[in-house]
Design a binder for these strands. Structure first.
Lengths: 337, 337
DNA sequence: CTGTTAGCGCTTTCAG
DNA sequence: CTGAAAGCGCTAACAG
């Protein structure tokens, strides 16, 4: 690899001249400039990024710190791709870091490996957050944590999302609604999940007060299998339900349960999701759902982080709205109760 | 950020002693060692990664170079997550680079931004490959290209995959099979797609010679919508088909088409996919499919690349096998023809 | 308009 | 067993 010195020698100038010729931060005579450029061409020179980073104390890259990252998690995928796209369009690099200990995350920042990190799937007393909190390193949460003072984060509005889902069903005339409750409602739950559950419940109550419907709760972890089992329990226990609300990946399980029971969607039972558009578009029938604004969240989080990295003292906690998209899985109930 | 000098001063030793105390490459008296470690602790020192990289001419990170990366592509997601997991378990960092020009990819390597790159979605005369070919930089393809001499790559065995799909249907007794042909069969197609189509056809022919069945071709780009349209055309044109083979995301469209026509799967028509397990698990009914070994491919490619980065002169072109997984979408045909 | 030079923080000879 | 010093490749302040 040729260095800036090689180019300088080849062109018969000094290294600094080469440097300035390559990024016009000071004026240069056209003749010299030409000569330098020719040498650059001849030697096929390109500056060493590591040396530049070392000098500038910046790596121009961001880290996405996530837990395991299951390949099957559509939401995580959407966050990831949107973040990667945004990062690279801002002329930065995105590094992916899985399963890091708090110390490792700190080391990343301290070693200038990355200029800032995006934390996803944060928990209530997330040790990674506590480790970062004291340090002056830029970081942004996608999600939330217990004590948000001084932190920047991007999340979506759980309350509004679930309100929209129940409101939609109620407007269609449903009065007996099943709800696959995401983890967080259990007595021993705490932290972020608990907060999310409170928000979820606020949304539900608001819709309920407004329209007056009955809701039948059934807890279900967010994967397909658990959604399937929970939906079966729900249907068997309460065959009179005319609609089901489900989130995460559980809708797929709900549809499967209804299908296996010979119930048609939406004719016999409506289903509404609170999930990513991708999942909603893949099912048969396509799911009416409150589409989570994951791409927008990624973009917002990346932009926030970039501002921090650039020295701005921002502290923003954004809550992005989710929007209801009517597809094919909801309709008025068959018979009015 | 404290530097190695600060620690040295604090401990009353030289920088090199600090260095050796931290990574025992030469012996050190326990006393001094203790003192240094205490200072490291006291100052909360950790070495600057960029300085180390600069010195060592290595970045300990790999690049994943991909085109647009649509959030909805399940296969790409699986490659990505598996690669990230493997990379980090090998104590390297994975950088994601989207939409890079050949020059940019080269600059990545030359600037020591990354030690090597993984290229995905390569085309026949991929300019990125041509740019890298001459250089001595380590890279591995996930996929293939026209001239593979001297290149390392990992792919799956198209011929075997499609053979398995048709063989499975034929063994079940199907004699009239529809096939949504992935792009590559058209006259003006060329390069990798064409090669893949040839391999696909070889698999089909082999099964056909062995079992003797009729196959009805219908071209379809790999997304849901096109799968849907192509399946509708196929069903309308040839209502006697008892099974359909589809790949990519098209199966979802096929199921939708069958559903809308009132045809039950697998009772009225079997469907088999050549796709990722994720898609197959999400449909109703679950798809019997030749599950592509995407995670294994990522791991293999990452390992190959790591070996190259470490100076081994490897040139391997791996073709990993795909395996048929029976789920719920295939059964013997209703009536024997 | 151009050149010289002093580092960035680390690793690694080379000396002692 | 320890220290001094050179240098990775680049940038920017300082001189001319």
């Amino acid at each position: 690899m040729p260095t800036i010195k090689d180019v300088a020698a080849h062109a018969g100038v000094s290294p600094s001249t080469v440097h300035y010729a390559l990024n016009g931060k000071r004026s240069i005579s056209p003749a010299v400039r030409e000569r330098v450029l020719a040498s650059v061409e001849a030697l096929d020179y390109s500056a060493s990024a590591v040396a530049q980073r070392m000098r500038e104390h910046r790596s121009y890259s961001l880290g996405l710190v996530a837990p395991a990252l299951p390949a099957s998690d559509a939401a995580m995928m959407e966050l990831l791709t949107a973040t990667a796209a945004r990062t690279s369009s801002a002329d930065h690099t995105l590094g992916i870091f899985l399963n890091q200990t708090p110390q490792q995350v700190l080391a990343l920042l301290r070693g200038q490996y990355v200029d800032g990190v995006l934390l996803i799937e944060t928990a209530h007393d997330d040790p990674r957050i506590e480790a970062l909190r004291g340090s002056a390193h830029p970081f942004v949460l996608i999600g939330q944590t217990g004590d948000m003072t001084g932190l920047s984060s991007v999340d979506f509005d759980f309350e509004e999302a679930f309100y929209l889902a129940f409101d939609h069903l109620a407007r269609l005339g449903h009065r007996e609604i099943g709800f696959l409750v995401p983890p967080g409602a259990a007595d021993d739950d705490q932290g972020e999940r608990k907060e999310n559950w409170y928000a979820t419940r606020r949304g539900l109550y608001r819709a309920q007060q407004q329209h007056g419907f009955r809701v039948e709760l059934e807890p279900a972890p967010l994967d397909i299998e658990n959604g399937h089992r929970a939906a079966l329990r729900l249907i068997e226990r309460s065959p009179h339900l005319s609609a089901i609300v489900a989130s995460g990946h559980t809708q797929v399980g709900v549809l499967r349960a209804l299908y296996s029971k010979g119930l048609r969607v939406p004719d016999d039972c409506s289903v509404i999701g609170v999930t990513t558009a991708q999942i909603a578009e893949w099912t048969i029938p396509r799911l009416t759902s409150v589409d989570l604004p994951l791409a927008a969240m990624s973009v917002a989080a990346t932009d926030l982080l970039l501002r921090k990295v650039n020295g701005e003292a921002v502290t923003e906690q954004l809550l992005l709205p989710a929007a209801l998209v009517e597809r094919e899985s909801t309709a008025p109930p068959r018979r009015t109760p």
